[in-house]
């Protein structure tokens, strides 16, 4: 499979994965040769069914896992030459279950924990904490214990505590699991804003509606390999591939495929786009 490169290739590479193989406990092969460049400013979704290797790949990016063979470089330096703490200054990683990291008695303390670990001076820690709490909309709950908050709020605390370390890249593992529509929209708004402000976002998910709405580039993984690397439209053009990768295309993509005789292109991402093509009655894309 030849990956389609959607954007200009000379953009700055921030994470460079080369021939990465990873084997758990000497026997379970999780990654079978990954090549991937994450560019500065990317809004990248890594999608695939459970067990496809998404999370393993992400953990190789921030040094929690080290390549069995091949290499991962962050800002041009191999991860094998950096500690997880050093990498944390560049790559922020919010885990799927926020309860796996929250332990402090107030939201503010929780958010301070990361930058303190990284050894920033007190004034800077205070500033970064303040800004992250603000950005994640947590000002009103900053003195409350994280455990008293709703799941949606706890996710925000977890992302704020990553944000306070001032990373260039945010890796977010299934950030919307268990959230309702409103909580999802609010959270994704905040994440979109991170990207608009120049941060690189890597979203790990299997929610294809979310991908269609937010991501600018999609990497599809299946059985430890990248089977497609393209813009979101390109992914929805190939429903077969999605199904083979244990993913279910969103209803609008399914509908677009069935309406191709009416001039609706296969790459349609949203209800708005589909209606636009129906109304214009032409195959042209917005």
């Amino acid at each position: 499979m030849i990956p389609r490169v959607p954007m200009s290739a000379d953009q700055d590479k921030i994470i460079s994965v080369h021939e990465l193989k990873f084997v758990y406990d000497g026997s379970v092969r999780a990654l079978a040769g990954i090549n991937l460049d994450v560019r500065r400013g990317d809004y990248l979704a890594i999608v695939g069914g459970n067990g496809s290797g998404k999370t393993t790949l992400a953990k190789n990016m921030n040094g929690l896992l080290r390549p069995t063979s091949g290499s991962v470089a962050v800002n041009g330096v191999s991860t094998s030459e950096q500690t997880v703490a050093e990498l944390a200054k560049v790559i922020g990683y919010a885990f799927q279950n926020p309860d796996h990291q929250l332990f402090c008695s107030s939201v503010a303390e929780e958010v301070r924990f990361g930058p303190l670990n990284l050894g920033y001076p007190e004034a800077e820690v205070a500033k970064k904490t303040e800004l992250s709490i603000e950005a994640m909309g947590l000002s009103s709950v900053k003195d409350l214990p994280p455990f008293s908050l709703t799941l949606g709020e706890r996710r925000r605390v977890s992302i704020a505590s990553v944000m306070a370390m001032d990373p260039q890249v945010f890796i977010l593992d299934e950030p919307t699991t268990g959230l309702d529509a409103r909580e999802t929209d609010d959270l994704m708004d905040s994440i979109d804003r991170l990207n608009i402000d120049g941060h690189t976002v890597v979203l790990i998910t299997h929610d294809m509606k979310l991908v269609a709405k937010h991501a600018k580039r999609v990497v599809v993984m299946s059985e430890g390999r990248i089977v497609l690397d393209s813009d979101p439209g390109g992914v929805f053009a190939d429903l077969e591939l999605l199904l083979r990768s244990k993913l279910v295309p969103p209803p609008v993509a399914q509908l677009a495929h069935r309406l191709s005789s009416l001039g609706v292109p296969r790459e349609v991402l949203s209800p708005e786009e589909l209606v636009f093509h129906l109304m214009s009655g032409r195959g042209a894309r917005k």
Binding site: K59, L64, Q101, F103, G114, N117
Partner: peptide, 28 residues
């Protein structure tokens, strides 16, 4: 892993620091 990703270096430093660090693992 979640705490290491936040810059926590477990098993480093003196006994008091280590004990304190483990609170970050124990509470969750």
């Amino acid at each position: 892993e979640a705490q290491r990703a936040r810059g926590l270096e477990l098993d480093k430093g003196n006994f008091r620091k280590r004990a304190k660090d483990y609170v970050a693992v124990l509470v969750p």
